[in-house]
Write a protein that binds this DNA or RNA. Structure first.
Length: 585
RNA sequence: GGCGGCGUAGCUCAGUUGGCAGAGCAAACGGCUCAUAAUCGUUGGGUCACUGGUUCGAGUCCAGUCGCCGCCA
């Protein structure tokens, strides 16, 4: 029975396109991790979906005069395309506006209610009589009570930066229609985090040595401080899942709670697809190791609130690890959709290939602290590391063999200590590099692999097969065999990181089958409507995390460069393009 | 305002339990020519944000200051 590994990623909200911050923070690391786990022969799945409900989508739909579904479909479909083209290999990527998710979210709600983890309370909020809706804090504007700024938002004043309670705004107005809202009281359900605190504290103190220090510190601190208070789990908005309690039909489950339940509903949907409706349970038993790849802004959600809900529900395994990343900055600035300071995945893919971005975002990943993406650095790493070190190693060896050895893997003669040393060194990489990936240290793992590639270049320079071929053809054959075998192993190790070019290399080396599987869109029909999901086809999958022997005589396919060298002007052009679109040029 | 994280070479970043500061690039010089002028070798370059403390010894531990990031109220 192989180990079971459930890999989850944060559910992105469907109000904009995926950008490199999302990719660096969660999706690329999660994909590397799950691809590696599959290569280890483990029963591993990557699961997530689009978060579709909530006020922003509702308002946008109203502004455009369409139904929220139109907005959801638009962005959901764009995200699906971005994942496919970036190679994020979801076994199932669904969305939250499905019958399945509605049912699971309502069941979760009722289960927590039955078991006494939800309570009712009354709160005050602004209500706009013109729009006929309660206003979330950021949809109320008014004069800041601290600095007098007249366009302060209900949650924060942009002028003096102070955080506000909407109720303290002077002369408040509805941001949507401008009318003056009134204060109304409204009854809501709350998640009883106080009651869950002892169990959460115990869990967070137990066997968490493998957690990242920042994640653990933040989480323990929140629980230890004893400040956990009830958190509302219902809202007075329309675009969401109705609260399944009599008298609350007009309210919806608060999106944070509803969306996070997606982790559960996506496994239920997967089981349905696989024809075993009860099969979802196998992802929630104590022997499953579940990983949640998220950004740092989401830490307490995944280390306190979601675990709290799981405890409240009972019989569901808690997260094994939450490898949260810090933030990716671009050009020293924080990414911001509203300020137009973004690099969207689909926009990037119009001009460049996926693997260089995967490489850049991994080698410079914000694992421990914020990191900075610049186009100069992107071009530099592409040219100096992917093209020059790894791509060129492959190219110089393959073209040489293709020309001088009739396109077949040469048969090696006796090996000397140098030959053995290189092979041993690369073969010995599988263990420690695999260990680094297991520990979610992707940056270090990739750096190690690149060092091995560099050593292969060194070996070539010392052996000089282009001279050997004149003086001692058998020795040249041995040297090139050693290189090809080493490249074969490096291909295996790089597959989780650079799936597209590794597949190309796999084929050039004369291997068959797929190293990387196939990601595709599937239409899922429910009783009232259908939705589109991402699926992953593992048939033909051949890659194993082990040193695969390269057979002498194997026929190579015609080599071509794995990576494109980028002109230095690319950095300037892209930087200028960004500055212009953000109005900073 | 409270809490947490970060601040290391010109640039982008590593630095497990405190023990002579590292890598890649950029810069300078040299070797090779199979390779997308790619590669390989050598050299130069840092008051580890600042101040104080603990210690035989601090980039690392403690306190404070400044700056950046996030969470919460």
């Amino acid at each position: 029975m192989p180990e079971k590994i459930a890999v989850f990623t944060a559910w992105p909200y469907v109000n904009g396109n995926l950008h490199i911050g999302h990719l660096a923070g969660a999706y690329i690391p999660a994909d590397i991790f799950v691809r590696y786990q599959r290569m280890r022969g483990r029963d591993a799945v990557l699961l997530s979906g689009s978060d579709t409900h909530g006020t922003p989508v509702e308002l946008r739909a109203e502004r455009e005069g369409v139904s929220p579904r139109v907005i959801v479909d638009r962005y959901h479909n764009l995200d699906l395309e971005a994942y496919i083209r970036m190679g994020v290999s979801y076994d199932l990527y669904t969305e939250t506006d499905t019958e399945n998710h509605w049912r699971v979210a309502q069941q979760m709600f009722l289960r927590l209610l039955e078991r006494g983890y939800l309570y009712r309370d009354t709160m005050q909020g602004f209500y706009c009589e013109h729009c006929k809706r309660f206003l979330a804090d950021r949809y109320v504007e008014g004069t800041c009570p601290h600095c007098g700024y007249d366009s302060a938002r209900g949650d924060q004043c942009d002028n003096c930066g102070r955080l506000l309670d909407a109720l303290e705004l002077i002369s408040p107005r509805c941001k949507i229609c401008g009318a003056t809202p009134v204060v109304r009281s409204t009854e809501h359900f709350f998640l009883d985090l106080e009651k869950l605190t002892p169990a959460l504290r115990e869990w967070l103190e137990d066997d968490k040595e493998h957690w990242r220090p920042n994640v653990l510190n933040v989480s323990r601190n929140v629980v230890r401080s004893g400040e956990l208070r009830g958190r509302p789990v219902t809202r007075d908005i329309g675009w969401g899942i109705p609260v399944p309690v009599p008298g609350f039909e007009n309210k919806t489950i608060y999106v944070w709670m509803e969306a996070v339940t997606g982790y559960l509903s996506v496994t239920v949907e997967l089981a349905q697809i696989e024809g075993d409706p009860e099969g979802w349970r196998r992802w929630w038993t104590p022997d499953v190791r579940s990983y949640y790849f998220i950004g740092k802004d989401n830490i307490t959600f995944h280390t306190i609130i979601w675990p709290g809900m799981l405890i409240g529900h009972g019989d569901l395994v808690l997260p094994y690890d939450v490898p949260a990343n810090e933030y990716l900055m671009v050009g020293g600035r924080q990414l911001s959709k509203s300020r137009n300071w973004v690099i969207e995945a689909l926009d990037y893919l119009q001009r460049y290939d996926p693997d260089p971005l995967r490489y850049m975002l991994t080698i410079n990943n914000p694992e421990k602290s914020d990191s900075n993406f610049t186009w100069e650095e992107f071009v530099r790493r592409n040219n100096d590391e992917l093209v020059a070190t790894w791509g060129n190693l492959v190219n110089r060896v393959l073209t040489f063999v293709y020309r001088k050895f009739d396109g077949k893997v040469p048969a090696p003669g006796p090996m000397d200590s140098q030959d053995e040393a290189l092979l041993n060194q690369i073969r010995a990489g599988f263990e420690p590099i695999g260990q680094l990936i297991e520990e979610c240290k992707f940056k270090a793992a990739l750096t190690e692999i690149m060092t091995l590639a560099q050593n292969a270049n060194r070996y070539l320079n010392e052996k000089e097969p282009w001279a050997q071929i004149e003086s001692d053809p058998q020795a040249a054959a041995t040297t090139l065999y050693v290189c090809l075998q080493g490249i074969t192993w490096l291909r295996t190790m790089l597959t989780p990181f650079l799936p597209f070019t590794c597949q190309q290399l796999h084929e050039m080396l004369g291997f068959d089958g797929s190293l990387i599987g196939r990601i595709y869109i599937e239409e899922r029909q429910e009783s009232k409507r259908s939705h589109r999901v991402l699926r992953y086809d593992k048939s033909n999958l051949v890659g194993k995390w082990e040193p695969e022997r390269l057979e002498p005589g194997q026929q190579l396919r015609k080599p071509k460069p794995l990576f494109r060298k980028l002109d230095e002007s690319v950095a300037e052009e892209e930087t200028r393009r960004m500055l212009e679109s953000a109005g900073l040029a």
